[in-house]
Design a protein around this nucleic acid. Structure first.
Lengths: 208, 208
DNA sequence: CACGATGATAAACAATTGTTCAGCGTGGTC
DNA sequence: GACCACGCTGAACAATTGTTTATCATCGTG
């Protein structure tokens, strides 16, 4: 990422197609020949640029992580204006919808990254848990929420609720009839989650 | 060797080892030779009994689905005593902890089944969503909860909160320092989720 | 004892996959 | 023109993997 002449043609295209295919089917189900064909190059060129398939996977990992990190800082950065409102917590999916094109392969790849065993996914998950804990603490300090008896678990609970939309996107789309990362789907999802976060599931919570 | 019921044959052992390995690494990362070695038999015998690796995978799918289905009916069956209390909803993980040994490979395999694209996982997810919807409706009818403005989405929300423990178990264990499917972990997780389900995240919910 | 039936195996086969290697075309420079 | 650096490729290689085939051992039974 330093001083290479230009990332312009074949090399970047290989990485982008790999990102897309990895996100769709998972790295194990994608062959070097698949990637080469999708990028319109020969399999040998893929290896020539990235040494190995695993090298390519690492390059995609780093690229996706970098994009996501930039997105994170921008997302929490914008929260400074009105630091804590209803939208301060479930911003992960919303940030993706805002900063990425609707057909971006990054959400899918991120979902796989978080699921796969490995240092990258683990670090990413831990990072997100920290962000979640910080957000919860900020909400609590502002009196907009309570950290609960077990702040670590509560933050993890909030986090996985957000990640579920990434990880189970195909299944949710199948069952709900709408892509949970689309505008409409996010609206419906956010409404319900915020409702629960605000007042719980409802019902006769207090016998007044 | 011979005293046990006729389920500890080589055939069953192959299936059980396949279930375990598939759950640990995913079917694509497990070779027929791996399974054969784990079961103490030859690779040829694996094929002889199940025709193909995919046939074995289907057999494991059916076995896991059957076990899970039995678990589901027993779990909702026990709910008849005191039909709806605090424990009526997030029973999925608890049912597993109750009906399965602590080191059972079934939760992991189920998690993968729900994530993988394919008819079995899709059907399973749809089935669970129905169960979740029914449970929510029952809670609502008893006045213990509200179906919300969007019952389908609310039921899906509750479902994925439960599934997250299955799907993200390694990551949660890593971050929280406790297996969320162990007794201790489930206790902590259930406490927080029920707290949120009951009253929301807390804080100054109304600006009096 | 012979003898199938049963259950299991070793060895080979064919296809796939990651990777290497020798070389080809093209464009800039002397 | 000669040359050479560079981006790229086609074909081959080696390892892995799912699967087949031909064979072996064992055991209850005539």
């Amino acid at each position: 990422m330093h001083s290479l002449p230009d990332d312009r043609t074949a090399r970047a295209k290989i990485r982008d197609e790999a990102l897309r295919l990895f996100g769709e089917r998972g790295p194990d189900a994608v062959t070097v020949r698949d990637i080469a064909a999708a990028a319109g190059v020969s399999p040998a060129l893929v290896i020539r640029h990235y040494q190995s398939k695993d090298g390519l996977r690492q390059a995609v990992d780093e690229h996706v992580t970098a994009v996501f990190e930039a997105m994170l800082t921008r997302a929490v950065g914008t929260g400074d204006g009105d630091p804590l409102d209803q939208a301060a917590l479930p911003t992960l999916a919303e940030a993706m919808a805002e900063f990425l094109p609707a057909d971006s392969p990054i959400p899918s790849y991120l979902g796989r990254l978080l699921l796969a065993a490995g240092p990258v996914g683990t670090a990413l998950f831990r990072r997100l848990h920290e962000v979640s804990k910080d957000a919860l603490a900020a909400l609590a300090q502002a009196g907009a929420a309570d950290t609960g008896a077990d702040p670590d678990v509560r933050a993890a609970f909030l986090l996985v609720n957000d990640l579920a939309v990434l990880i189970l996107r195909p299944q949710l789309r199948e069952v709900l009839g709408v892509d949970p990362l689309s505008g409409d789907g996010m609206q419906r999802w956010a409404t319900e989650t915020l409702s629960v976060y605000r007042t719980g599931l409802g019902g006769n919570t207090d016998p007044t």
